[in-house]
Design a protein around this nucleic acid. Sequence first.
RNA 1: GGCGCGUUCGUCUAGUGGCUUAGGACGCCGCCCUCUCAAGGCGGAGAUCACGGGUUCGAAUCCCGUACGCGCUACCA
Length: 492
Amino acid sequence: MSIISPRVRFAPSPTGYLHIGGLRTALFNYLFAKNQNGKIILRIEDTDRKRFIEDAVANLLKTLEWAGIYFDEGPEIGGESEPYFQSQRLEIYKMYADELINKGKAYYAFDTPERLQQLREQQQKLNQQTMYDKFALTLSEDEVERKMENGETYVVRLNVQPNETIVVDDLIRGKVEFDTNIVDDQVLIKSDGFPTYHLANVVDDHLMGITHVIRGEEWLSSTPKHVLLYEYLGWEKPVFAHLPLLLNPDKSKLSKRQGDVAVEDYMKKGYLKEALINFVALLGWNPGDEQEFFTMGELANKFSLERVHKAGAVFNIEKLNWLNAEHLRSKPNDELLLMLKDELSKSYYKDKVLADDYLLLIIEAMKPRVSFVNEFITKCTYFYTEPTEYDEHVIKKRWKEDTPEQLTKLRDNIAQLDNPVKEDFENALTKTAEELEIGKGKLIHPVRLALSGIGTGPGVYDLLFIIGKDKSIGRIDRALKIITIPKTNVSE
RNA sequence: GGCGCGUUCGUCUAGUGGCUUAGGACGCCGCCCUCUCAAGGCGGAGAUCACGGGUUCGAAUCCCGUACGCGCUACCA
């Protein structure tokens, strides 16, 4: 006898892109499966024909793969529970709907949308829960048969038995009770023959051997319907775990308008998958100790549903940015090189020929100063092109009356260097300062300005070495020509 | 309106009756390091634990109520 290893599923509907909340749900399912040595299945819930979107599935698959979430079974992978598209499982749902009808647990209904609408409005006016009034149950068998023969459109509805209490035992929230008097006779099969989510997800979860249903909290309210379905069909229920929602800064459910919600948006903005995964994992889950930086493997090792908490979490971009920088810094330089080259090929400097060794020097120098890969370019354009203008504030602060003379001297000393390394530049600068009997700062800041055009960045000796002797001299000469001393800088 | 869920620093969170003068992280501020900016190190401000009642010798932690927020309330998922 062996303990049944868990089987979980991620069951998105193909809406065209992967929502960040969907990524979180997928991730928690994935981490749970990995942690428990179980299997994770991808199932496409495409039962809404009105919302069919071309290429949505391909997109979903691509994004999930980018994120590093891999499935044991699903579209393109296959598995013992094929097919994994609900739209290809229509006969199965029909079969179980028939079984429910035969058991008296479901029934045909022929109501017009207009009548349903009216009913709803009436109930709302009376401050009642809006739900179907079981009118179709008053029809005689003959009437039903006649209507069917006439080809009237119909739906199949769940026949909820009144005056019962349904207890949903949720792993995260504990026992949640519902009164069946306010559980609606949910449509199971729509008039187009497609099942609704409620029927399809229960049937598939059972047939696919799903042991744990891990999904967003928005499903908690309809779980009693699912529980009823399991009971009416005589099936064992899975364990339910409803995840807290991801929220906008104003605490409403995370949505467009208030920021990016598609995983692809974050891909495009240059976020690392490692950072996004790490960040999203920490939204609603914590390891119980003080670790914040995680790799996917570490997450899988430590993950447990018991440590998922109940309240919704605001998506806090600042922390994501910090994690992105952390993950970026944790990467080896040769990996960053590949990423930088890719970024470069899409940039203004795409036609520039740059040696790997040169780029590696930039990476080394800029690594602690960037949060995103593209900042290896945008925060230090002076490594790719000569500065054309010089920061006025820096000129005002650092470029004094005697600066040109001092810089010229430094330039001359540098010119004498033969194949200099970083230390040679440092020695040259120290020597110049001594000869001039001035502090090194008098030279350092103007040189930086001349080389980079700005007042911040890596150490000047690094700058000199990376940019190189000849180009450095050229830039100093150019700065000497262009920068004029503002009146306020003239001493006395 | 009905039903359900939730509520600890601005944000993510620790906390499961005494270990808590409520801990950590992001962000913010300061100091150190230092040629600048970062990174790093150190420190600081920041939460009457939504509110009101209980229970208890003792409650952020248990119970009840209220408020607020959110979700669901479709032949969407």
